[in-house]
Simulated scan of single mutants.
Amino acid sequence: MNTTTLAANAALNAQLPFWRKLGWADYGFALFVIALSVAAFQRFGSFMDGYEQAILVGTAIGTIALGWFWKALRVLVPVSIVLSLGAVSLYGDDLGRAQTAFWLKYALASQSAAMWMCVLFFLATAMYWVGLLRRSNTAELIASGLTWAACGAACVWFFVRWYESYLIGPDVGHIPVSNLYEVFILFCLITALMYLYYEGRFATRRMGAFVLLIITAAVGFILWYTLDRGAHEIQPLIPALQSWWMKIHVPANFVGYGAFALAAMLGIAQLLVSRGWLADYLPSHDTLGEVMYRAIAVGFLFFTIATILGAMWAADAWGGYWSWDPKETWALIVWLNYAAWLHVRLVKGWRGDVLAWWAVIGLFVTTFAFLGVNMFLSGLHSYGSL
């Protein structure tokens, strides 16, 4: 088949209605997600209020849409869920089996899955650097596979830890996005998945060496926080977090944080390329800038949604949408920072190193808004600590 025929077929396919572009694999994935959602409702529906049931429906629809948009998720999601269901069946109603059942103790219990995630991300980072410096496609392919495996382990951790919390007690059970240990794992998962999408979209694995560095830093924090502080232990939610708003506000926030972190690491890579360092190894200066822009655009969208959701949560919990609490003030600073970044790129046409530096500095601003405010400033959000 010649190039002209291929181009004609592509143009014809682009004109087809959306539903005509879907294949049996797409419909099979949708049926799989729907069946799991129904099963989850049948088993856990008694614990859900109306809002949580709506979240379940929205999550199912969103997962199907993402799977249709990004085909790789049609493998990650089913494999992660099957492994998670295997862990649930091994547990039964006895949390103590985490120490006696072989597969739970060494692979599928939440803490085991978290440790596998950490190991796999460390290995992936090393292999990305080997692939970059030696221009080895094989090493890069292995690194990409390890990153996918780490994401799978993080997904298993998420679902199994959620189930484990309910085994402790119905009043303890909660979605695992409530403390620094849990949200750092969420950060690793979201940042890695975003990177893997851009890796496939731009057909280059050369960005992974830099992006995985920020994930590895988060993994280092997770290990320290686990081994030194025992932060992996499941604790009941404090009253301030006993709200269904947490289930949507926190994940939306961390899509933003993950995107901003990814953009900052690409900004560092772009600055190196502009100075001739690793220029023969990394993607082009323009490619790095384009991926950085797309990441910030996605992050800004989700951070905006998270900020609005946070204001609605504040109104529900404290009676007002905005109180100039330090966390709220710094969230506004982060929002204005990236709004200005997008403005000068889209409206003023800025490109190059100035935006790369801005993205790198923006990561420090975002980090302080996430960690520094809770650690050093007092306010309504001062319930996180190291």
Rank of each mutant, 00 (worst) to 15 (best):
L31W: 06
E52Q: 15
W24P: 00
S80V: 07
K21P: 00
P78H: 06
V119W: 11
L16P: 01
I64Y: 02
A98F: 06
A72L: 07
A107T: 02
S84H: 09
A107S: 10
D93S: 14
L90T: 04
N9A: 14
P17M: 10
M115R: 14
L123Y: 02
P17V: 08
W68E: 01
L120Q: 05
L73T: 10
T125L: 12
S37T: 15
I55A: 11
A10K: 09
G58T: 09
R97E: 10
L31F: 11
S80F: 05
T63L: 12
L104P: 03
V119R: 03
R74F: 03
A35F: 04
S112I: 04
D93I: 08
Q42T: 12
Y27H: 07
A101F: 06
L95G: 07
A72G: 05
S89K: 12
A60D: 07
Q99F: 12
S46N: 13
S80K: 04
S84V: 10
L56A: 13
V119I: 15
N13M: 13
G23W: 05
R20T: 04
R74M: 10
R74T: 07
V119G: 01
Y51G: 12
A114M: 11
I81K: 02
V75Y: 13
A126C: 10
V88P: 00
R20L: 06
W103Q: 05
K105N: 11
W70I: 14
Q111A: 06
L66C: 12
R74P: 03
Y27A: 02
V33R: 02
G96S: 15
A14N: 09
Q53N: 14
V88L: 13
W103F: 15
G28K: 08
V57R: 01
G28S: 04
G23E: 05
F44S: 06
A124G: 10
T59V: 15
V38R: 08
Q99Y: 12
R74I: 01
F122R: 00
L73W: 06
W70C: 00
M117H: 06
S110V: 07
K105S: 07
Q111S: 11
L85Y: 11
A109R: 07
L120I: 04
V82Y: 08
P78M: 07
L56E: 02
F69I: 05
F29C: 01
A101H: 13
L12G: 08
S80R: 03
A107R: 03
A60V: 06
L22Y: 01
A14V: 04
V57T: 13
L66T: 09
F102P: 05
V119C: 05
A14S: 12
A11K: 14
A101W: 04
G58H: 08
L12C: 00
Q53P: 00
L120T: 02
L108V: 07
F32L: 09
P17R: 09
Q53Y: 13
V57H: 05
S84A: 15
M48I: 01
